[in-house]
Amino acid sequence: MNAYYNSIETFGAVDGPGIRLVIFLQGCFLRCKYCHNPETIAFTKEKQISVNEVIKLYEKNKNFYESGGITLSGGEPTAQIEFCISLFKKCKELNINTCLDTAFSTFHNIDKVKEKWIELLKYTDIVLADIKHIDNKKHLDLTGKPNEEILMAVKFLDENGTKMWIRHVLVPGYTDDKEDLIRLGQFIGTLKNMERFEILPYHNMMIPKYRRLNMKFYLDGVIPPTKEYASKCKDIVDSGMKSVLKIMN
């Protein structure tokens, strides 16, 4: 089983627990205005990697991955879901921790994709769930796609008992509205299997990539948030979570 990929990070420290081997698969259905990896968007077929080649890369630096494992990211890894299933199944045979970094853009027509997702989740230890925006209209403007099925996917994973780290990129003027952050907190406050919530501050270090790729960048005037502002916004999300938990308890 082969997959098309863009790049490989051998010592990833932010894509799941511990130090990890991270494979960035090629292709994504979303068109996020702040995409940090625009080179992974197109469904190009320039580079292939097999399940066995990924395992060999892992074995090469196995000692460094003692408290980590393998992460599939992208792009959208589940655009190549058969590969994800094949690799993670092999990882479980070898007792390798597995992590899926996804924005759920393949979770549509649920009756058609449900079985594949259930199969994948059987071999997935943790999911990094990227919620772009809680408001459907703003999500559509920000990513080019609505969010109903994405939020449905998060709920589906939660009901499946899948451990999740919920992530939200904080983009000033786009994803930092107070009421939206409260609603986001209220949504994730209903999840039983969320282990962690992270605010990821927007940065503009990817702008040179857009220029090299001759791609339009939509957020030229956006200034990255300070740590203090990101912390303040996380507190707002936390307040939304607590309000739901208080009612549930």
Rank of each mutant, 00 (worst) to 15 (best):
N2S: 10
N2A: 00
A3P: 08
A3K: 07
E9T: 11
F11S: 15
A13L: 09
A13P: 02
V14S: 04
D15N: 13
I19P: 02
L21I: 01
F24G: 05
L25F: 07
G27D: 08
G27F: 09
C28K: 09
C28E: 07
L30M: 14
C32P: 10
K45T: 14
E46K: 14
E46N: 14
E46V: 01
K47A: 00
K47Q: 04
S50K: 01
N52A: 13
E53Q: 15
E53I: 00
V54D: 01
I55M: 09
Y58P: 03
E59D: 12
K60R: 12
F64C: 03
Y65C: 02
I70T: 05
L72N: 10
S73L: 09
Q80T: 12
E82W: 02
C84R: 10
C84Y: 08
C84V: 13
I85N: 05
F88H: 07
K90N: 12
N97C: 10
T102Q: 06
A103H: 06
T106D: 03
V113C: 14
E119V: 04
L120W: 07
L121W: 00
D125M: 06
V127M: 10
L128A: 06
A129E: 13
K132A: 01
H133P: 04
I134N: 06
N136L: 13
N136T: 15
K137W: 12
H139V: 00
H139W: 02
T143G: 02
G144P: 01
K145C: 08
P146Y: 04
E148N: 13
E148H: 10
I150A: 06
L151S: 05
A153C: 15
L157M: 15
L157W: 11
D158W: 10
E159R: 14
G161K: 06
M164A: 12
I166A: 01
V169P: 00
P172D: 06
P172F: 10
P172E: 05
T175R: 03
D176I: 08
D177S: 11
D180E: 11
D180I: 13
L181T: 14
L184A: 15
G185M: 12
F187I: 02
I188Q: 10
I188V: 11
T190K: 15
K192W: 06
N193T: 12
E198K: 05
I199L: 08
Y202H: 11
Y202M: 10
M206W: 01
P208W: 09
P208I: 06
R212Q: 13
L213N: 07
K216M: 10
I223V: 15
T226D: 00
T226P: 00
K227I: 09
A230S: 15
A230E: 11
A230C: 14
D235G: 11
D235P: 00
K246V: 08
M248F: 09
N249C: 05
